[in-house]
Amino acid sequence: MDEVKNKFRESMSRLATGVTIVMTEIEGRPWGLTVSACCSISMEPPLILISLATQAASTQAIINNQRFSVSVLAEDQIEVARSGAKAGAPKFFEEFSESKGSFNYDVKNALANVHCRVEQTVTAGDHTIFIGFVEDVILGESKSPLLHFNRQFGEFNTAVRN
Rank of each mutant, 00 (worst) to 15 (best):
M1Q: 06
S40Y: 08
K143Y: 01
A81N: 09
M12D: 10
L49Y: 05
T128R: 15
S144P: 02
M1R: 02
W31K: 03
I48P: 05
E79Q: 09
F149Q: 01
A85I: 02
V70Y: 00
F68G: 04
S42R: 03
N104K: 04
L49Q: 12
G18C: 04
T158A: 07
R82M: 08
K7M: 13
R161T: 10
A57R: 14
R161N: 00
Q60D: 11
E75D: 10
L33W: 10
L146C: 08
S51N: 13
K100G: 06
S71D: 06
I50L: 07
T121N: 12
F133N: 06
I138Y: 05
S11C: 13
E119P: 12
T59N: 06
I50V: 12
R67M: 00
P90Q: 07
K86A: 10
S144G: 12
V70I: 14
D136M: 07
F96S: 05
P45S: 02
K5R: 14
P46W: 11
K91W: 14
K86N: 10
V122C: 04
A87P: 06
E3Q: 09
Q120R: 13
G84Y: 05
S83E: 11
V22K: 00
N6C: 02
R14Q: 08
N65T: 10
T158V: 10
L47E: 09
A124D: 10
A81H: 04
A37E: 11
L147I: 15
A124K: 08
R29G: 13
W31C: 05
S99Q: 09
Q55M: 08
P46R: 13
K5E: 13
